[in-house]
């Protein structure tokens, strides 16, 4: 007995050391840099400076929330249709949804410029039809479109995998007992798929709220998000302390959003059970 625990200790040691050095220590570094100035002495200046970024944080949360909602609205019916299809169709669709994720996200985002630009494909088509050019690129809509496009698979996959495991005899039972198809969806399918929805929301919201490339390319630099501000502090302004403070605020914000959402999801479940 003693021998096995010693062996486990030896096996665990490399990873635990690694995790302390390269997961925990970097997190500590973020806090340390956020609470110090250039010379390394304690200051709250970086935290109070966050007030300037109020609008940026608001915009990030707003855009990410809209993108997450749009992803959910698009992905939910698709996941349902996929889960009810035959096996070979499921496999093909799965591959088609995963394939874009294997492509570099910078290129995928950049290609949208060719489509949305003022001389781009959509506007060329519109001009051919005799309609005036429409400003598509460099708008908040383009930024949100970029988020939806890049992170939609992260919403589809968890909902789909829950839908696959769903017991459809429950749906039939509800129908036999006189449920209309709308209330079957509301009272049977949706509550059962809630865990997939919650993890989908997390997997779309976190990268959306922290992205920094999409807004620069599709928003033309006019609608800066928190990610852009952080990137600027590290790559152009070289103010690591302010950058660390922004990152700390971003982490705290995401944590709060997650806690609120999990509570909301739990309450929802409770209400349905009642």
């Amino acid at each position: 007995m003693k021998k096995t625990s010693l062996r486990a200790k030896i096996l665990n040691a490399p990873y635990i050391v690694w995790a302390i050095l390269f997961i925990l220590a970097p997190m500590f570094m973020v806090v340390f840099y956020a609470l110090t100035d250039r010379s390394g002495s304690f200051t709250l200046q970086n935290i109070t400076a966050l007030a300037v970024y109020k609008e940026t944080f608001g915009r990030s949360i707003g855009y990410a929330a809209v993108a997450t909602a749009v992803c959910l609205l698009i992905a939910y019916p698709l996941a349902y249709i996929m889960a009810r299809s035959n096996a070979s169709k499921q496999r093909t669709l799965m591959l088609l949804i995963m394939l874009p994720m294997w492509m570099n996200f910078l290129i995928r985002t950049y290609s949208w410029i060719s489509i949305l630009a003022n001389t781009g494909i959509i506007n060329s088509l519109l001009r051919a039809l005799g309609l005036g050019p429409v400003q598509l690129i460099n708008t908040p809509g383009a930024v949100i479109l970029g988020m939806v496009y890049n992170y939609l698979p992260y919403m589809i996959l968890p909902i789909y995998s829950i839908m696959c495991k769903l017991d459809y005899s429950l749906v039939e039972a509800a129908q036999d007992l006189g449920c209309s198809s709308r209330s079957v969806l509301r009272r049977v399918i949706f509550p059962l798929s809630l865990p997939g929805v919650v993890s989908g929301i997390t997997m779309v919201f976190v990268p959306s709220v922290s992205t920094f490339y999409i807004s620069q390319k599709l928003g033309g630099g006019k609608f800066l998000l928190v990610g852009d501000s952080i990137e600027m502090q590290f790559q152009t302004s070289y103010n690591y302390n302010l950058g660390a403070s922004l990152s700390l605020a971003l982490m705290v914000m995401i944590l709060v959003c997650m806690v609120v959402m999990n509570r909301f999801a739990d309450e929802d479940e409770g209400a349905i059970i009642l």
């Binding site: 570094m29 840099y33 690591y240 982490m251």
Partner: peptide, 27 residues
Amino acid sequence: MVLTVTNIPMMNPEIVMGISLMLLFVF
């Protein structure tokens, strides 16, 4: 506890992972 720490790189935004490691290396 170890499993919770293991989840940090997956749950944290990538940009935060990136800058936190950069800060450690620079430090």
